[in-house]
Amino acid sequence: MNENQRAARNKKIAHAIMWIVLLVMFIAFIFPFLLVVINVFKTKGDITSNPLALIGAHGFTFKNFPAAMKKMNFLTVFLNSLTITTSATVLTILISSMTSFVIVRNGKWKFCTIIFSLMIASMVIPFQVLMVPLVSVYGNVLNSRITLILMHVGFSVSMAVFMFHGSIKTNIPIDLEESATIDGCNRWQTFWKIVFPLLKPTIATVGIINAMAYWNDYLLPSLVLKKKDLYTIPIATQAFYGTYSTDIGLIMAALLLAMLPILILYVFLQRYIVEGVTSGAVKG
């Protein structure tokens, strides 16, 4: 066996070992999810007596799902989450990109610099510092989806402006805008016809990061939405757990329902989500 063959063999062995380590880690990572999936199809008694069995002693049951769906009011809750997440995400993208456009193109204007620095500085403020005054100032307009949407947008504007700022500054040559002006575009048309379409990668990143954050947020929605028919998925899950914590079969079904929409989405958009999150984290 010559040197090259030995090296190739060693590499193969190393890869096999790494593959096994990865597989073990992978199973450890998805173990909790697997456990939920196998227990969803068991009766309450079977889960308690043996949570690890693949099939319960009393066989499969499909009763947990419809029962949990009905008791959690899943359709309403899901639609609430969907409406809030989509509107807040779209608004965040539109509003932040417009804001950054003006800030970048007026870089020498003191006022813009101040606002931009204020936004950057505000990113270190944890939500816990703002929640009490927020509830106190806006106490009269709580229990409304619109309030929650606007608050979501307000909290993510600074981060999104920061990302669009970088992207406009480095990727959009000012000559392009000048030629658009010469061709008869005003600033508004220049932005929407020339600049905005060129921001696509950043739009995707900002959209994905914020949509995931809005969908999963618990604390802010729980402070704003106190009425049952306005609940989003995380609040409804929490309330459901409080009420039915002894009925473990129902809990399993509710947890799976809460995860399912985003997991299904992930199967189809996995590449974009991973890319979006990576570039968002690396820039932010």
Binding site: S96, N106, I115, S122, L130, P133, L150, S158, V161
Partner: peptide, 24 residues
């Protein structure tokens, strides 16, 4: 121009972050 483009963003940011921070 600023109000047209950055008005909504600035207003929401001030209303949700800066005002509560100071009021807090």
């Amino acid at each position: 121009q600023y109000i047209l483009f950055a008005g909504p963003g600035t207003a929401l940011f001030l209303a949700v972050v800066i005002v509560p921070f100071i009021y807090g």
